[in-house]
Write a protein that binds this DNA or RNA. Structure first.
Lengths: 199, 199
DNA sequence: GTCTATAGCTTGATAGAC
DNA sequence: GTCTATCAAGCTATAGAC
């Protein structure tokens, strides 16, 4: 188990993730992936014998886990969820501006492409989103949001992020991300106030 | 100006719109479009000499306008914006369920695909979204939401719709659309209450 | 306006040397 | 594990008959 094979595999997955984010699944050819990952067709099929489908599944799982860890670490780095969520939307807006509106959700583009046309990949993405929603709901509940409200607000949070990415990227203006962020923060603050009143 | 040419052109655009919604821009070939629209390559290039790019631009403009009219007619069919927005999210959830989670936003998939890789199409979609946001903001303002809040809530509304479509399609469960709908309705109700208090 | 045929290129995938 | 060469099938776009 040398280091070479691991590095190549990781380069391929990283390159695939970046290309998926930029142009989606169908527009990304294996040749472009191999070139960006400094690998060859041979290496690619060595690590992913199932071809493009297997590589896509591995990439979506990998970048899905990575994005969840990133978001949760931003939220956990704040003193409370509300502050954490604010930081999260601010960070997303900053990253959009800093990367010329390329660096966004590593899943969403492929998700919409395959949701109704590639059942195996749809299931992979379904698992990724479920994991995000579970993590967010747990974090909200830990700060005092009642269980059921926490699950609903987790959905609102992720949907707002995704909608914010879409509008911001198309407009090349991250203010949409900031707007949806304010709305999510207000909704969570409301839920916490209501919970404290013991409603 | 007979009826024949108009019908063919419209069939091509309608077929393109449906295929874009289902699988996006790159995965949709001109052959599939011609077949679904009961046309031939010759007819397709007769109406759209610019090829796929021109056809895509025309289709996105057309379905963008159509979707705006649909949404605004649902909202305007209600006695007030809040009720209208509620109806809007309910209708979107119903349509998702009724169409096996295929019938969603006719723009979003292509939008994410091209936002960072096809500048002319990105600009077309930018115009479509701007038109949606303007229409929604005007409708909110007409019901008493202060101008600035109305623009922000319009963004929240569209982003919630898009995020709800994404999560619902991937999960094959429209409850996400219902959740984001409740959040948007609550936010608008808050804004109206605040405006009436004269804050 | 509609049709068929085809050019020229790219795609995902395979084979076999090293 | 990595590389190159290659295949069959797909793509967008064009040409020219009708």
């Amino acid at each position: 188990m040398g280091t070479t094979e691991v590095d190549t595999r990781e380069r391929i997955v990283a390159a695939t993730s970046a290309l998926f984010m930029q142009q989606g699944y169908s527009a990304t050819g294996l040749k472009a992936i191999a070139k960006a990952g400094r690998a060859t067709t041979g290496s690619l099929y060595h690590f992913f014998p199932g071809g493009k489908a297997e590589l896509a599944a591995a990439t979506l799982r990998h970048s899905g886990r990575g994005y969840e860890e990133l978001v949760m670490s931003v939220i956990d780095g704040a003193p409370d969820v509300v502050t954490g969520l604010r930081a999260c939307f601010a960070a997303a807006a900053d990253l959009l501006r800093a990367t010329d509106y390329v660096d966004a959700c590593p899943i969403a583009t492929v998700a919409l492409e395959v949701a109704s046309s590639d059942e195996p990949l749809r299931q992979v993405i379904d698992e990724v989103f479920r994991s995000w929603l579970d993590a967010a709901a747990r974090r909200l509940a830990a700060d005092g949001v009642p269980e059921e409200r926490a699950q609903e607000l987790a959905i609102v949070f992720v949907a707002a992020l995704e909608g914010g990415f879409l509008l911001s990227r198309v407009a090349r203006d991250a203010s949409a991300m900031e707007s949806v962020g304010r709305a999510v923060v207000a909704a969570v603050e409301d839920a916490l106030a209501e919970a404290r009143r013991g409603s």
